[in-house]
Computed example of a mutant assay.
Amino acid sequence: MKTMEKTKLVASTTILAAVLTACGSNTGSSDEPVKITQTMSWFAQPEMGGHYAAVAGKIYEDAGLDVTLQQGGPQVSNVQLLASGKVQFAMANADEVVLARNEGIPIVTIFANLQTNPQNLIFHKDSGITKIEDLNGRKVYTATGFPFWQYLSYKYKLDKVQVQNYTGSLAGFSADKDSVTQGFATNEPYVLKGEGIDVDWFLNADLGYNPYGNVVITTEDMIKNHPDTVKKYLKATVEGWDYYYAHGDEVNKLINETNKDYSLDHLKSSQEITKDFVFGGDAETHGLGYMSEERWKTLVDEMKEAGMIKKDIPTSELYTNDFLPEK
């Protein structure tokens, strides 16, 4: 299964040049809808359901926006697409934003779809694993360049792990009950249960690494020159999340038409699990999409501690809540 977002930052000088030369061509005339393209973090799935719901329910359209949702995937660099001006909004993990800003790429997070990140490490129930340190000496299918693995392997001294290249396939993990694989709490457990494999997992957030997930990012230029469009887009997206949980069957049908790898039953299961990741945490008191300075500061500190970045990055460069609708 293809489940993990791919962190693919291209050469910073190339991207930075593209950002500086990209022009805002999405304003349209006063009597025409504003054309917007948003590239997603991966293939269509419930973790981004609010956006698809805003399309299905014509919420973007009613806000005067002509929105195209562009699927992500292993060969898609969202930061590059955003920086080059090919899309107005993109989706990423919060740690990808830190890495981009560390390279001087002026992108900003404007909305957090997932308050809790569903990234996890999955193991067979009868493997004897009871704590994260038990991964030492075992095969772990993971992408070594992913920030979550860099931090967790550093924090828990997982220096005896036999790292196996993660390709998106579960075949190796399924065949070896002593192995571990990266995944998403919203996806792989369902797939493996369907194959008759009992699993358990460590949620990375519970292990101390919890970057905001599926954040919406844009450029400093977009924020400066088209603030009203940014506000309209986020307001419609928030309304889309409410629409998704009121009209789940309708929206899941659209997601299924977009990504056939997810059956309708799978989508329904994933939607139920996703709900708390979206509506829980700070979103419960501050509204959907909200982000705290403390969370961003913790993430920067963790990434610096693990050697992923060398300098402190001001949180004011990483995110803003200024365009969120009032709760």
Results as ranks from 00 to 15, higher is better:
K235A: 12
G280V: 05
S84D: 08
S12W: 08
P33Q: 11
I107Y: 04
T315S: 11
K268Q: 13
N136Q: 00
G24C: 12
M1T: 15
N93P: 12
A171T: 12
D261C: 05
G64H: 05
D198F: 07
K311Q: 13
N187S: 14
I217C: 07
D200W: 11
Q70F: 13
S77R: 03
M303F: 04
G85D: 06
T181G: 05
K260S: 12
V230P: 07
E133T: 14
I15D: 15
A306M: 04
D249L: 11
V216T: 11
T37N: 13
K275I: 01
T237V: 10
D66Y: 00
Q45S: 13
I36D: 01
S12P: 08
K260T: 12
K311G: 09
L234I: 10
F89M: 00
R295Y: 06
T130C: 11
I122P: 01
N165W: 09
K327Y: 02
L192P: 02
G72M: 07
A175L: 00
K310R: 14
D242P: 03
L20E: 15
T142N: 14
F111H: 09
Y209M: 00
E305M: 07
E220F: 11
W296A: 13
K2G: 09
S25R: 15
K160M: 05
T219C: 03
D301C: 09
F323S: 00
S263C: 09
L69M: 09
V191R: 14
S292A: 02
L16M: 12
Q119V: 14
P211K: 08
T37M: 11
D249Q: 12
S263M: 07
G289M: 01
M91H: 13
G183A: 02
N321A: 04
I273F: 15
S25I: 11
N102W: 00
K155H: 08
K193L: 11
G64A: 03
A94Q: 06
D66I: 00
L264S: 10
